[in-house]
Computed example of a mutant assay.
Amino acid sequence: MKGRVLVIAGSDSGGGAGIQADIKAITALGGFAMTALTALTAQDTLGVHDIVPVAPGFIRRQIDCVWDDLGTDAVKTGMLGDIATIRTVRDALRARPTVPFVLDPVMVAKGGASLLDSAAIGVLRSELLPMASLLTPNAPEAALLAGLPLDHVGQMEAVGRRLFALGAGAVLLKGGHLPGDVLTDLLFTADGIEEFTAPRIATRHTHGTGCTLASAIACGLAQGLALPAAIARARSYLQRAIAAAPGYGSGAGPLDHAVTTRCDPLVG
C-alpha cells in the first residue's frame, strides 16, 4: 500500500459515487484512503432524495485529525455544497504543507439534483480553484465555471483554455457528456494540450464515474506518478470498471470498482 489520499466529499448511501466510490477506487489502485465527510445523502441509482450537510467546524476537525496523525500525500475534493464548506476547506489547505490537490467541481448529481449552491459557484471559482493542482470538470460543470457554451467536442479547447486561465495548475476537461462514439478528454497545462481518447461504452451504468476518475488520479499523484501517467492509469481503470459494471439498480448503476482484483493489476 502506497500513497495517502485525503478525500473531502459527500457520502452516497447507494455506494456508487461520493466517498464510497473514492475509497474503493483508491484502494483498488493500491493507495490508502482517508476521508472528511461534507454531507450525508439518501441516494440510489435513481437520484439523490435527501441531503444532510455536515457542520463546517466538524469538517475542519476531520481534516485536522487525519492530517496531524496519518499525514497526507494528496487531497481530492468532491461535493462541497455551500460557501461555508468551500471556505472551510480553503482555510484548512492553506494551513498545511502543499500536496497535490485534485478538485472535482461536483455541482449536479447524475439524476439532476443540485449538489452545490448557485451562490457558491463564484466562490469555488475564485477562492478554491486557483489552489488546485488539477481541476476535473465534466462538460456541464466546465460550461458553468467558464461561462461559455459546451455542446460538442469542437468547443472544448476554448472552454479548457478559459478554465486554465482561472489559475489551477492543470485542467482535465472531460467529454463524457458530449455526443459521439469516441470519448475525448483534454488536459490543459503550461506545456500545452494533451488529448486522451477511448471508445464510448454503451451502458447506463455510469454512476460515480467523475468521483472515481478524480480519486484514481489523486491516488496516482500520491504515489509519485507524473500527471499524464496518473491520468492515463486512472482512465484505463475507469474504463475497466465501467465495462465490468454489475448491473445493479433501476437507474444509473454503479461501476465495478474491484475490477483490478480480477485482471492484470494497474497498481504501481
Results as ranks from 00 to 15, higher is better:
Met1Tyr: 14
Met1Lys: 14
Lys2His: 13
Val7Ser: 15
Asp12Ile: 09
Ser13Val: 12
Gly14Ile: 07
Gly18Asn: 03
Gln20Asp: 00
Ala21Arg: 02
Thr27Phe: 09
Leu29Gly: 06
Gly30Gln: 11
Gly31Ser: 04
Met34Ala: 11
Ala36Lys: 14
Ala39Thr: 14
Asp44Gln: 07
Leu46Asn: 15
Gly47Arg: 09
Asp50Thr: 10
Ile51Pro: 12
Val54Lys: 08
Pro56Gln: 00
Pro56Lys: 06
Gly57Pro: 01
Ile63Gly: 09
Ile63Arg: 10
Asp64Ala: 14
Asp64Cys: 03
Trp67Asn: 09
Asp68Asn: 15
Asp68Gly: 01
Leu70Lys: 07
Asp73Cys: 04
Asp73Thr: 04
Asp73Gln: 06
Thr77Arg: 05
Leu80Thr: 07
Thr85Asp: 09
Arg90Pro: 03
Asp91Glu: 15
Leu93Trp: 14
Leu93Gln: 05
Arg94Val: 08
Arg94Gly: 15
Arg96Lys: 14
Pro97Leu: 03
Pro97Gln: 03
Thr98Leu: 12
Thr98Cys: 08
Pro100Gly: 02
Val106Met: 00
Val106Trp: 04
Met107Tyr: 02
Met107Gly: 06
Ala109Tyr: 01
Lys110Ala: 15
Gly111Ala: 07
Gly112Asp: 10
Ser114Glu: 02
Leu116Asn: 06
Ala119Pro: 01
Ile121Thr: 06
Gly122Gln: 00
Gly122Asn: 05
Val123Gly: 06
Leu124Pro: 05
Arg125Thr: 14
Ser133Phe: 02
Leu134Thr: 12
Leu135Gly: 03
Thr136Tyr: 09
Thr136Trp: 04
Ala139Arg: 00
Pro140Ala: 04
Pro140Trp: 05
Pro140His: 11
Glu141Cys: 05
Ala142Met: 01
Leu144Ile: 11
Ala146Ser: 14
Leu148Ser: 07
His152Met: 08
Glu157Val: 01
Ala158Tyr: 00
Ala158Trp: 02
Ala158Ser: 13
Gly160His: 03
Arg161Leu: 14
Arg162Gln: 15
Arg162Glu: 15
Leu163Glu: 10
Phe164Asn: 02
Phe164Ala: 15
Leu166Phe: 12
Leu166Asn: 02
Gly169Val: 11
Val171Asp: 06
Gly175Ala: 02
Gly175Arg: 01
Gly175His: 08
Gly175Asp: 03
Gly176Lys: 03
Leu178Ala: 08
Pro179Gly: 12
Pro179Asp: 12
Gly180Asp: 13
Leu183Lys: 01
Thr184Gly: 02
Leu186His: 01
Leu187Tyr: 12
Thr189Leu: 14
Ala190Gly: 15
Asp191Thr: 13
Phe196Leu: 00
Arg200His: 03
Ile201Phe: 11
Ala202Met: 08
Thr203Asp: 03
Arg204Ser: 13
Thr206Ile: 15
Gly208Val: 10
Cys211Asn: 04
Ala214Phe: 05
Gly220Lys: 05
Ala222Ser: 09
Ala222Leu: 07
Gln223Cys: 05
Gly224Lys: 05
Ala226Trp: 00
Pro228Leu: 10
Pro228Arg: 10
Pro228Tyr: 10
Ala229Gly: 12
Ala230His: 14
Ile231Gln: 14
Arg235Tyr: 00
Tyr237Asn: 10
Leu238His: 09
Arg240Ile: 06
Ala241Asn: 09
Ala244Thr: 07
Pro246Glu: 13
Gly251Phe: 09
Gly253Ile: 01
Gly253Leu: 05
Pro254Tyr: 14
Leu255Gly: 13
Asp256Cys: 13
Val259Gln: 11
Thr261Pro: 00
Arg262Lys: 07
Asp264Pro: 00
Leu266Gly: 08
Val267Ile: 13
Gly268Ala: 13
